[in-house]
Design a protein around this nucleic acid. Structure first.
Length: 757
DNA sequence: TTATCATGCATGGGA
DNA sequence: CCCATGCATGATAAG
């Protein structure tokens, strides 16, 4: 499966059986009635059982409904579980968390997907059940975020399996808050306190928020903007809690006490996203306690850490929502339908060619942004040549995929952030709804951003290790696709730079891009198979690209799954993700979707980069010892070289400038061939410095793209981390590589694909 | 059996 | 003598 998948699952917070549900964030904010003016979920997205239907408190100021988009929500008539998935993708795992969880990965989670099957894992199917959130009356009334803990052992196991790749934190069961039998509903505040996201005693202080900013102004803004407290904010007491009442007194903001900074962040976010996120959306958000806990551990209990976590969550919500919106805009079709289309057409712009890479199995929700893994190697887009940009993998990746690089553009991109969770077969049906691998989803740049450990890492410490050589970095979104968010620094200490920073404008642009992408997919879906194949060979990475990852950046890392085959590299970013895509069958490079994690700033950079370039995946090559040695030359796969690189008239070859996607550095290389028997061997020479600078080693891979706009060549080095650190070895690699190659796949791609899985 | 490709190693230029 | 260059060979995978 793709790392991304694992990540995705984590994001879903399915790691534990404890779920944190953010309900009525908005409502919590305003809850005029304190008890929650119960509002039936108009969207029908409520994953809860109908019987369990919970009243939703709409966030309103005065009588004004802050959630203007609410009515526009599509009503999905699907079963609860399915709704849940489709509605909100799991929150991507925190990259940093991966280490802890990896140890428990189950075979299912770690086992690579069959080349032909989608990356989605069976494990992911179980989540549906687990996600069926049981709400307590209290929750409904309060509309607060609550943690729910299920006792179903089977479910838990499944979740663990699914999450195995991600770090799951052991969180003590919430105190019997509501005394809900099987399910414990925990007060949000309590939860956060537990998680340390928010100090136990630290309460969001609305007043403080206003002090820092003109309250009046804020309120005015709120009139037009949706205001919902962050889940954490809503956690504060029960509805009956005096504090909640205070909210009413204070226009619903009193619940924010104690941490003005966090509150401000949340409010700012609400203001920026009022047009994109509805109360229903917020209600449907569920966070796994374990995930949060893991994240908080990673991020630390400091205020900064909490801020990061909040940002991460908000970013996730935002990203998801964007996807969802896009879907809606395209039409009322169900997400699944969309998925199908994508799968069939595959002209997936995603850079995650490697779904494998990537980026991971995607969550059932096509809209999910996190589907891909962050750092997958840019595997070629899956056919993917396009990496979700790789997003990521460089997937993730996400494409999966060597996450990224190329995110949008990068096949690798990252491939790949990202998606990740348990691998599922495309055809697998969960609760009547077909599950698809994230890799198949159109990769979104964001996906990569989440690329947190797209691939399940068995060895935690490896997962997030930074690139040794590149300290700079950007993670490789799947190798190819850069992931928007860089979660880990080379030292593995920097968890993530969340970039909630996206501005409204940027968001709009993103949405427009996504829409274009979406329609693009549809167009392709109608294309003939032949055309599809061509596309697979070379995708325009355009959007996928979250490639922005720098080679050196963590985003470029691809992880090798210890499990099946053991040597598949999974791009941290996600490029490899691509491999898992069904259509990509052949050689889509894995994106590093994965696989990569990027900070928001990185993501922005990548996005910018993406928007400016249309990358076409040309080829990728898993580096052999002779390629990374001191010869300074890399043997290129003949078929790809002949079909995607300039035709060589003479053996002297041609000089070819390759711009390093990660660093923008231009390398003057030489492309030539050697007569070999009756054939030729194609080489890229003068690669010594490139290899050195990127710290590439045997087992890592390079992905070459062409910028369709500028006509220049782009290259990305994707690092593959093997849990066992085996790649370091010398000789075994050679034989292993061969062995790894999958039938039907070129040997050069095999590793990546495996990684993607 | 053939094609592909990793790499061993011969050759030759330059220090 | 060292190293870059380039050919030849052997191991695999594919057909």
């Amino acid at each position: 499966m793709i790392k991304d998948e694992a990540v995705e699952q984590d994001l879903r917070f399915t790691a534990g059986n404890v779920e944190v549900k953010i309900e009525d964030m908005a409502a919590g904010v305003v809850a005029a009635d304190g008890g929650g003016a119960g509002v039936a979920n108009p969207t029908g997205f409520d994953p809860m059982d109908e019987d369990d239907h919970q009243a939703v408190v709409m966030a309103t100021i005065g009588e004004k409904d802050l959630w203007l988009d609410r009515d526009q929500e599509h009503l999905l008539d699907v079963n609860d579980a399915s709704i849940f998935y489709s509605d909100f993708p799991p929150l991507p795992d925190f990259p940093c968390m991966s280490s802890s969880s990896s140890s428990s990965s189950t075979p299912a989670a770690s086992k690579p997907m069959a080349p032909t099957s989608s990356s989605s894992s069976a494990a992911s199917s179980s989540p549906a059940a687990s996600w069926a959130v049981m709400k307590s009356d209290a929750e409904e009334d309060t509309g607060r975020m609550s943690f729910q803990q299920t006792t179903d052992v089977e479910e838990v196991k499944a979740e663990h399996a699914a999450l195995s790749s991600t770090a799951s934190m052991e969180i003590p069961p919430p105190s019997d808050h509501d005394g809900l039998g099987d399910v414990d509903c925990i007060d949000v505040m309590e939860n956060f306190g537990y998680m340390d996201l928010i100090d136990t005693n630290e309460i969001w202080d609305p007043s403080s928020v206003f002090q820092s900013e003109n309250p009046q102004e804020f309120l005015e803004d709120q009139q037009t903007a949706a205001a919902a407290p962050p889940p954490a904010l809503l956690l504060e007491g029960s509805p009956q809690d005096p504090k909640m009442q205070c909210q009413e007194d204070n226009d619903g903001f009193s619940f924010l006490q104690g941490n003005s900074e966090l509150a401000m962040i949340f409010f700012e976010w609400l203001k920026q996203n009022k047009d994109y996120i509805s109360a229903e959306d917020m209600r449907s958000i569920k966070l796994k306690r374990s995930t949060i806990e893991s994240a908080s551990k990673r991020l630390g209990s400091t205020k900064e850490g909490k801020k990061q976590l909040l940002k991460l969550i908000l970013e996730w919500v935002e990203q998801y929502q964007l996807q969802k919106k896009r879907m809606r805009e395209s039409g009322p079709q169900s997400p699944y339908a969309y998925q199908e289309t994508v799968q069939n057409s595959d002209p997936n712009p995603n850079p995650n060619p490697n779904p494998n890479f990537s980026y991971s199995s995607l969550p059932p929700d096509p809209n999910t942004c996190f589907s891909t893994s962050p750092w997958m190697p840019p595997g070629p887009p899956p056919h993917a040549s396009e990496v979700t940009a790789m997003v990521a993998a460089p997937p993730s990746f996400a494409p999966p995929m060597a996450t990224g690089y190329g995110g949008g553009c990068d096949p690798y991109s990252n491939p790949i952030p990202v998606a990740p969770m348990t691998p599922m077969n495309h055809h697998q049906v969960v609760n009547g709804i077909p599950y698809q691998h994230s890799a198949e989803y159109p990769v979104m740049e964001h996906a990569q951003s989440w690329v947190i450990a797209p691939f399940p890492m068995q060895q935690p410490h490896h997962q997030f290790s930074p690139y040794p050589d590149n300290s700079n970095i950007i993670t490789h979104q799947q190798a190819l696709y850069g992931h928007p968010y860089q979660l880990f620094d080379p030292n593995g200490e920097r968890l993530m730079r969340l970039g909630s920073s996206a501005t409204k404008e940027a968001r709009k642009k993103r949405m427009a891009r996504q829409r274009r992408l979406y329609s693009h997919h549809h167009r392709h879906s109608s294309n003939s198979n032949q055309h599809q194949n061509q596309m697979n060979d070379a995708h325009v990475v355009g959007d996928a690209g979250e490639d922005g990852d720098q080679a050196g950046s963590p985003g470029n890392w691809v992880y090798w799954s210890p499990g099946g085959g053991g040597s598949s590299p999974t791009p941290g970013n996600g490029p490899p993700a691509e491999a898992s895509q069904p259509h990509s069958g052949d050689r889509a490079p894995v994106q590093q979707q994965s696989y990569q994690r990027q900070s928001s700033s990185d993501r922005r950079q990548q996005q910018g980069w993406k928007t400016e370039k249309n990358l076409k995946f040309l080829l990728q090559k898993v580096l052999k010892q002779s390629d990374v040695g001191n010869l300074g030359r890399i043997v290129l796969p003949k078929k790809e070289a002949e079909s995607h690189l300039p035709e060589l008239e003479s053996r002297d070859g041609i000089s070819i400038a390759m711009e390093d996607i990660g660093t923008s550095r231009v390398w003057n290389m030489r492309y030539r061939f050697w007569p070999n028997n009756k054939s030729r061997m194609y080489l890229l020479e003068n690669t010594g410095d490139f290899v050195r600078v990127n710290g590439l080693q045997e087992g890592d891979f390079i992905v070459i793209y062409s910028d369709t706009k500028c006509g220049k060549y782009m290259i990305r080095g994707v690092k593959v981390r093997q849990p066992g650190g085996k790649l370091e070895g010398k000789k075994p690699a050679r034989r292993n590589m061969r062995n790894l190659s999958l039938a039907g796949n070129s040997s050069s791609l095999a590793p990546i694909k495996q990684a993607v899985r």
